[in-house]
C-alpha cells in the first residue's frame, strides 16, 4: 500500500524556549491509503498533541520544535502547510461533540461551514449537501436535524454531526481523537461501526487516537504504542496484539480485560506510573517500571528498530530475550461485529 501521510521526528515543546519541556519527542509514523492507524498509550503519553500537531491545531503554549509532516499529493509525498490541508486533505473529529460543535449555529450550517468557507458554496447549495452528509452519517431524520441546534441532539447524534462536518470537505485522512470516549458504551459501538463503514465506502485513511486497546483491535490495521512522548512499538495489529515486542505493550495487553476475564479477578496492572513530561529518565523511559531492565537500558538511545523474526518495530533492546510464548489474545481477535452502522 502506498503511503498517504508521513510524520517524521515530530518534536513538540512547551515552557520557556531556554529550558523547554518536550511532551512529544521524535515521534514518527506512516499511514497508507485506506488504512486505519491506531495511536495508543496511557493518559499523558502525548497522543492528542501528536494528532493536533498533524493539522497544526496545537493548544496555546505548545509549539512544534522539529519534524516533517508530509501528505501524498499527485503521486508524491510533499511537506504541507496547514492552510493547504485543513478542509482539503485532512479532517479531524474531536473527542467531545458537546464542546466541538458551535452552539450558536444550526447543525446544517455547521456541517458545511468548511466547504462554504473554502469553496464559497452558496447557502442554498450547502443546505442540500448538508442533508446528504447527515444522511451518510446515519442521522435518522437529516432534513429536520439540519435545522436543529447542536444542544437539541443526543451525544451520539452530535458525534455523527461532528463526523459529517469533517467529511464535508472530502478529506483523504480523518484524524480521530478518542471520538467515542465521551459516549455510552452502546453508542460507542454505533460510532465505531459508522467510522468503519465510512472508511470502507470512501476509501478513507483514519488515524485513531485512543487508550482503549479493544477499539484499536476492532478498527485498526496498524498501531503505534506511545509511552512518555515516544513511540515504543509499531506494527500490524494482529502482530502487536499476539506477539508484542516491547514490555510496555505486553503490559498494556495483560491489563486489558477480555470476555474470559472473571469479573472479580483484578487485572494485571503495570506497577508505577508514567513519568511526566518534565521528569523523564535518561535512556529507555520505561526502565523504572520494566521487569526486564538492565543497567544498559538507562544509556539507551531511542531507536525504533526492526525486530528479528517479527514484522513489528520496537524500541526495546531486550526484545530478543523477551521470548516466551505468544500472548493468548484470541478472544481479542474476533472480527468487527456484524450489522450496519
Amino acid at each position: 500500500m502506498s503511503p498517504l501521510l508521513r510524520i517524521t521526528d515530530l518534536v513538540l515543546e512547551t515552557g520557556p524556549a531556554a529550558a523547554p519541556v518536550r511532551p512529544v519527542s521524535h515521534v514518527g509514523f506512516e499511514v497508507a491509503h485506506g488504512e486505519a492507524f491506531g495511536l495508543v498509550g496511557e493518559s499523558g503519553s502525548g497522543k492528542s498533541l501528536t494528532l493536533r500537531a498533524v493539522i497544526g491545531l496545537l493548544p496555546e503554549g505548545v509549539r512544534q520544535a522539529g519534524g516533517t509532516l508530509e501528505l501524498e499529493r499527485d503521486g508524491a509525498m510533499r511537506p504541507y502547510r496547514f492552510a493547504e490541508v485543513r478542509g482539503r486533505g485532512i479532517g479531524m473529529v474531536f473527542q467531545e461533540p458537546m464542546t466541538a460543535l458551535n452552539p450558536t449555529m444550526r447543525v446544517g450550517d455547521l456541517v458545511t461551514a468548511g466547504p462554504r468557507a473554502r469553496y464559497g458554496w452558496s447557502r442554498r447549495a450547502a443546505r442540500s449537501r448538508a442533508v446528504d452528509l447527515l444522511a451518510e452519517v446515519g442521522m435518522p431524520d437529516p432534513k429536520a436535524q439540519a435545522r436543529m441546534w447542536p444542544h437539541q441532539l443526543s451525544g451520539g447524534l452530535r458525534q455523527r454531526v461532528m463526523i459529517a462536518m469533517a467529511l464535508a470537505t472530502e478529506p483523504s485522512v480523518l484524524l480521530c481523537d478518542e471520538p467515542t470516549t465521551a459516549l455510552d458504551v452502546a453508542v460507542q459501538d454505533q460510532i465505531l461501526r459508522l467510522l468503519h463503514r465510512i472508511r470502507t465506502e470512501r476509501g478513507l485513511s483514519i488515524v485513531f487516537v485512543t487508550h482503549d486497546l479493544g477499539v484499536v483491535r476492532r478498527l485498526c490495521d496498524r498501531v503505534a504504542v506511545m509511552y512518555a512522548g515516544q513511540v515504543v512499538e509499531t506494527g500490524r495489529v494482529e502482530e502487536v496484539f499476539t506477539r508484542p515486542t516491547h514490555p510496555y505493550s505486553a503490559g498494556l495487553l495483560r491489563s486489558m480485560p477480555t470476555q474470559d476475564t472473571p469479573r472479580d479477578r483484578p487485572l494485571a496492572a503495570i506497577p508505577g506510573g508514567q513519568p511526566g513530561a518534565g521528569d523523564r529518565p535518561e535512556g529507555c523511559r520505561f526502565a523504572p517500571r520494566c521487569g526486564h531492565a538492565l543497567p544498559a537500558c538507562a544509556g539507551l538511545a531511542h531507536v525504533l528498530a526492526a525486530v528479528p523474526g517479527s514484522p513489528s518495530r520496537s524500541a526495546c533492546i531486550r526484545v530478543a530475550d523477551l521470548g516466551g510464548p505468544p500472548l493468548d489474545r484470541e478472544a481479542l481477535l474476533s472480527p468487527l461485529p456484524g450489522g450496519t452502522a
Binding site: 482539503r88 466541538a100 468548511g114 469533517a166
Partner: peptide, 8 residues
Amino acid sequence: AAAQAAGV
C-alpha cells in the same frame, strides 16, 4: 479548533 480543522 473544529472549524479551523474544517478549513474555516
